[in-house]
């Protein structure tokens, strides 16, 4: 009996020492995973995931606090990419998240704008230019379509415009496969 105890505790002490050493030797600083997740997120900074931006959401995913299906602008493809990166199953959008919408940009009706700067403060990527009591306008190329500027506008002069298909952004369609229905 005593020998059994001795043997087992001997093994335990030895292994404990090895592991303790390894814990010091292989200590990991920070979490490089956050950047990888952040790179997949669409950077609209819209907060639809209920986190104040893409990076905080990425941090939450990496910490295991958030689900991967909370980013409507990333679409199902974004979920798929996150699932692949993290080695988890694909998860469709939940009922509490918005459905993905076609990519849009904000447009300020310049006749109505009173120059209150509220939208400028709301814009997460500084894509609105203007000054107090001056008409504001949106830099379309920088707009992420997050809609955060729509609600603060006191005169409802901001609308979201779906980006139209033009010859410059046109894409080839998935070929029609005559025998089997397209996936």
């Amino acid at each position: 009996m005593l020998s059994a105890l001795l043997v087992m505790s001997g093994i335990a002490i030895l292994l404990g020492a090895v592991l303790g050493f390894a814990a010091i030797k292989f200590r990991v600083e920070g979490n490089p995973l956050v950047d990888k997740i952040d790179a997949i997120l669409p950077q609209t900074q819209c907060g639809q995931c209920s986190y104040p931006g893409c990076k905080p959401y990425a941090t939450a995913i990496a910490a295991g606090e958030a689900d991967i299906n909370r980013c409507p602008p990333g679409g199902e493809e974004g979920i798929q990419k996150l699932a692949d990166l993290l080695g988890v199953e694909f998860k469709p959008f939940g009922a509490d998240t918005n459905a993905p919408k076609p990519k849009s940009v904000a447009l300020i009706d310049e006749n109505t704008c009173i120059g209150c700067t509220l939208c400028i403060q709301a814009c997460p990527v500084d894509a609105i230019v203007g000054a107090a009591k001056q008409m504001h306008t949106i830099i379309t190329a920088e707009c992420t379509g997050c809609e955060l500027c729509v609600a603060p506008c006191p005169v409802d002069c901001i609308s979201m415009v779906v980006i139209e298909e033009k010859i410059t952004n046109w894409k080839w369609k998935y070929p029609i496969y005559a025998l089997t229905p397209a996936q």
Binding site: L41, V125, A127, E142
Partner: peptide, 8 residues
Amino acid sequence: ADAARVRF
């Protein structure tokens, strides 16, 4: 997205 991240 990268540009938006930088601006954000």
